[in-house]
Simulated scan of single mutants.
Amino acid sequence: MSAGGTKKKACVTGGNGYIASVLIKMMLEKGYAVKTTVRNPDDMEKNSHLKDLQALGSLEVLRADLDDEGSFDEAVAGCDYAFLVAAPVNLHSENPEKELIEPAVRGTLNVMRSCAKAGTVKRVVLTSSAAAVSSRPLQGDGHVLDENSWSDVEFLTANKSGPWGYPVSKVLSEKEACRFAEEHGISLVTVCPVLTVGAAPAKKIHTSVPASLSLLSGDDAAFGVLKGVEMATGGVPMVHVADLCRAEVFVAEEDAASGRYICCGVNTTVAELARFLTEKYPQYTVKADLLSGELLEKPRVRLSSARLVKEGFEFKKKTLDEIYDDVVEHGKALGILPN
């Protein structure tokens, strides 16, 4: 509660998304009044979890679209904090510039404009991605990347290999948001999560969840995502979604927080993950045939959350054991794994 007994208000964009659904639940449990945005509030297939979350506290669901200028005005009006979680994720678009990069930057600035207009927003927290940190050519082993590391846009744009548009969209959205925040005197903090796993209220399946379970499910395409992360970044950095959302609330409420924060619970590899899952879940057979080809024994590149920890944040899930605690149950509930 803030002074005078009124609830603090927060806006979370993209309420039907995986991360946003956990963040909304957490904010409600902390006593915040929350406004969230979705493209179509009437689409119950995507939004039914928001109805359930309304039982926890004051949650208003509003219609807004990243492409529509001004459509976030109502959602951020009167809010103390704005969490920008919604973003286009179209990884395999035919035309990444038009279908991913431009809409991502435009959408971010659209919400930032609404925050500037509102005049009440004390802090904006932008959810970026470790893809904005680690997509760059690095030779050899033993690299530790911190917040000063940026993905190499020129390299990505020139080579156009893999889902290159995604890291580019994240770098450019971050940089444009920073520029806008400086020009308009907005306090902006950016969080760069790694591969995010764990249970969430949202029923919509997020790429990272099937990827984290692909060695148990045998899903080739999902395993391709996991292996792709290792090939692109030199390791498989992971964080539990509950820790990520706790970090987002932490940097929102912590007055001294500023700039970028990497959010990573553990740095592992596909091979290490396979060994861990074989031991922990003997009832499933780890699909050994997926493990052919070149795999790293240990990460060549590690992502460091030292800055976040130094400023007082504590990860609750720092081992694969702790991180995977609810992942398998969640996978069963979503039908990714057999019961």
Rank of each mutant, 00 (worst) to 15 (best):
A3Q: 11
K8P: 02
C11D: 05
N16K: 06
N16F: 11
V22T: 12
K25T: 12
G31T: 13
D42F: 11
N47Y: 14
S48E: 13
G57T: 14
E60G: 04
D68Q: 08
F83M: 12
N90T: 14
L91T: 04
I101Q: 03
V105M: 06
N110V: 08
R113Y: 08
G119A: 04
T127L: 14
A130W: 00
P137F: 15
E147I: 09
V153G: 00
P163L: 01
W164M: 03
V168R: 01
S169F: 10
E182S: 14
T196R: 05
T207A: 12
S208F: 00
S208K: 00
D219P: 00
F223G: 02
V236A: 01
V239N: 03
C245L: 09
A247T: 07
A247Y: 04
E254S: 07
D255Q: 11
R260W: 06
C263A: 13
T269S: 02
T269F: 03
L277S: 03
L277E: 04
Q283E: 15
Y284W: 08
V286Q: 02
A288D: 15
V301S: 00
R302S: 12
A306C: 02
E311L: 06
F313P: 00
K317P: 00
T319M: 03
V327L: 12
K332M: 14
